[in-house]
Design a protein around this nucleic acid. Structure first.
Lengths: 332, 332
DNA sequence: CATGGGAATGCATACGTATTCCATTCGAGG
DNA sequence: CCTCGAATGGAATACGTATGCATTCCCATG
């Protein structure tokens, strides 16, 4: 059924290896022959078999990307630039969506169908990196990392971003401040909270546990946590959310509860997704360059595959920037 | 470097074919041998090479899914259930995101690395289906189709959905009605508009061209079209949008323009994405079962691959349902 | 005119798995 | 004790491409 290089060879009156060489622009084949082969390949609509090539070259030019839930608006904004950059680098992207790192079937990663892996869902207690190391499978962390040395990672200055928010809230006069942070076993959750706490402490502001919630970086986390935080004896006047998706959940919960933002409550996010600037939200948040974050991860992975990366690991950190919009206000 | 079935064979003291048979539960290998082989495979952490298997079996157990833009909130809600259903059917999903059908490199589809393709971005004038037909590559349309007979497609009753909206608007007393429809070369755009127009006509309501906009199913389409429609001499009192994403763009534009919804303007969407029920929107829309739409497409494709589908094509149509929320009101 | 050398191409084979076919062993029945 | 068939496993091979090595051919040089 399928056309092979043998078919092309027969039509062009040459051997199969010559077809392979001609189509790959090997200089050892004459211009005349190359042209003849091209014509024949064209005529037959020949497309080289990927499996054959993979088996022969031991390389697939394909990279796996592990994410948890595509319906979370965060991931598409990572995947799109990742896809484009990988394509530019001559690789294809294989998307693996699983509930968690642990659920990723090893076989899918280790069956020689991938040249490398981008981990966008790492937790600090994940066993997956060690497994990949053991099998010599190149990988990089994107956005989240494990926090261990020797990692290859493209990340954001999460701690710095958290500090930015704390500074701003302190300057605006807020004292009863709450946080809806990401999961404690993610560096994005942990470090944003850390920077936030440190800078709050510098300003002499405490963050008692009953004004703190933690959860997955999902809409529901913000939507469900906000009412509980507002139930406290001393209601907070400001909430820092682990990321924009959580913040948007919180904004919707505020609207449902009749709490006015920013008059009654200041809400601040993290990431600056396109959605954050929608009129209905106008979310004050912390920006970083998500496109560059992804591109950088792609380039780092390819360098690692090519053996051009620092053998001791590389950690690329992007800066953050405060983006004032309409969900923050001075404490009344 | 990589462990092969030969390594396992050596360790277990059997031949390579026996390893293949043992791990695939071929009954021609004794229980004792099977156990021995399993042990050896386990010890070596053996994972069969996908390329080798593909070359030998001429099947990849992998299905390609073509979408345009993942950052469009619609697609993730298609892809997630598609991924799950394909996985349940024993296939992996390969995501191909391209600007348009036409930009999809043929090689990627025809290099024998896919057993089938799901087209989620078909336009009525696309050349891709014909190319796939020519090479005998099984495919199905998801959501959009070409409208030709003989297609394999999982779609929604778009015309019926459009009618539902027109009926409702007519009953609510609206007469100056506008539409922001999808692209005319998509069946989703065309048929929703068609049903809408037909039912409006039944009610004796016209839809002049200056109250109509068309564009891609994107946020920007709604955001940019609404102000123009509101500029007309006779401003519309209701707008039907091609889908929820467009409607959400329109809602944000209304907010920016100071137009109150639903008091001044009724806005209605299509799809009922989870986002439509967010407090900030509470979008009145037309629901269909997006999960089932995707699952159905996956199952249809697998049946086609297995040769179990109707050779004359199959068209699976899901019903629609009107979902009243908070963006519609009686004409003042 | 013979020989050396380079350019162009073919031959043989490797990659890893699955499968067809054949060889061996063993047990049962005559 | 022989034969036959079933059970089991091995040898050989196919899948499609890429590549090291051998071969051919032609031309230039001595």
């Amino acid at each position: 059924m399928a056309i092979t290089s043998h078919d092309v060879a027969r039509l062009a009156g040459v051997s199969q290896p010559t077809v392979s060489r001609a189509l790959r622009d090997d200089r050892r084949v004459s211009a005349a022959t190359r042209e003849k082969v091209r014509k024949a390949a064209q005529a037959l609509n020949y497309v080289p078999s990927e499996a054959g090539r993979t088996l022969s070259t031991r390389s697939t030019r394909r990279i796996g990307v592990i994410v948890t839930d595509l319906t979370n608006p965060f991931y598409p904004h990572v995947i799109a630039p990742l896809h484009d950059e990988l394509q530019a680098l001559g690789y294809r992207m294989m998307l693996l969506t699983e509930r968690s790192d642990e659920a990723v079937a090893e076989e899918k990663l280790l069956d020689q169908s991938l040249d490398g892996v981008v981990l966008a869902t790492a937790t600090t207690d994940s066993a997956l990196p060690a497994q990949l190391d053991r099998r010599g499978m190149p990988y990089v962390f994107l956005n989240r990392e494990t926090g261990r040395r020797g990692d290859y990672a493209s990340v954001v200055d999460n701690e710095g971003g958290g500090r930015l928010v704390a500074h701003t809230l302190a300057e605006l006069g807020h004292r009863r401040i709450a946080g809806i942070f990401g999961a404690a076993n993610t560096t994005t959750g942990r470090d944003r909270e850390l920077g936030f706490r440190l800078a709050l402490a510098d300003a002499g502001i405490g963050l008692p546990e009953d004004r703190v919630a933690r959860g997955a970086f999902e809409y529901e986390t913000g939507y469900e946590a906000l009412p509980r935080l507002l139930d406290a004896a001393e209601t907070p006047t400001a909430v820092f959310c682990g990321n924009d998706v959580v913040a948007i959940g919180a904004l919707n919960a505020a609207l449902a509860a009749g709490v006015r933002v920013p008059d009654d409550l200041t809400v601040i996010g993290f990431d600056d997704l396109p959605m954050a600037s929608w009129e209905v939200f106008r979310l004050t948040t912390v920006r970083h360059d998500l496109r560059e974050l992804s591109r950088q991860a792609a380039r780092l992975l390819v360098r690692r595959i090519d053996g051009d990366a620092d053998p001791d690991g590389e950690r690329l950190v992007l800066p953050t920037e405060f983006v004032p919009r309409a969900t923050h206000a001075r404490h009344p």
